[in-house]
């Protein structure tokens, strides 16, 4: 796998949630991903970015443009140094929420993308990686 481009953006405020989802979209527009792909990836990015800001106390987002056997992909990795998630399985179920959200964030984001990976350690933080292949 080749990384053709990457960029790290801070994720500390609501405004930065917008910047991160807009950056994801503009990279995908540049690479001519379909409109549905752009919309799904942008929405998943927004959900995860909000989790990092609201529950993780802020963090960062790393955007990567990938190439593997002639296919172009985009990956967004969102990381925070928040409290972490003790029970990942429970956190992935729909309507599970630790706060005031709809509880669609993790499970819903997973449904929207091609690849979804999550690492979390209580007391250390959470990292989620989502990828869309063209």
């Amino acid at each position: 796998m080749i990384f053709t481009k990457s960029k790290t953006l801070a994720l500390r405020s609501e405004e930065e949630i917008v910047l991160v989802r807009q950056a994801t979209r503009s990279w995908m527009v540049e690479q001519r991903f379909t409109l549905v792909a752009q919309t799904k990836m942008m929405t998943a990015t927004s959900e995860l970015a909000r989790n990092a800001v609201v529950y993780g106390g802020g963090g960062s987002a790393r955007l990567e443009l990938l190439e593997e056997s002639g296919r172009v992909g985009i990956r967004v990795q969102i990381e925070d140094r928040g409290p972490g998630i003790a029970d990942l399985e429970q956190a992935m179920t729909d309507h599970f929420t630790s706060g005031q959200g709809l509880g669609l964030g993790l499970g819903g984001s997973k449904r929207l993308v091609d690849e979804f990976e999550i690492w979390s350690e209580p007391g250390k933080g959470t990292r989620v990686s989502i990828t869309w292949w063209k």
Partner: peptide, 8 residues
């Protein structure tokens, strides 16, 4: 399409 798949 996206909001339906998201489960909203």
């Amino acid at each position: 399409i996206t909001i339906v798949e998201l489960g909203m």
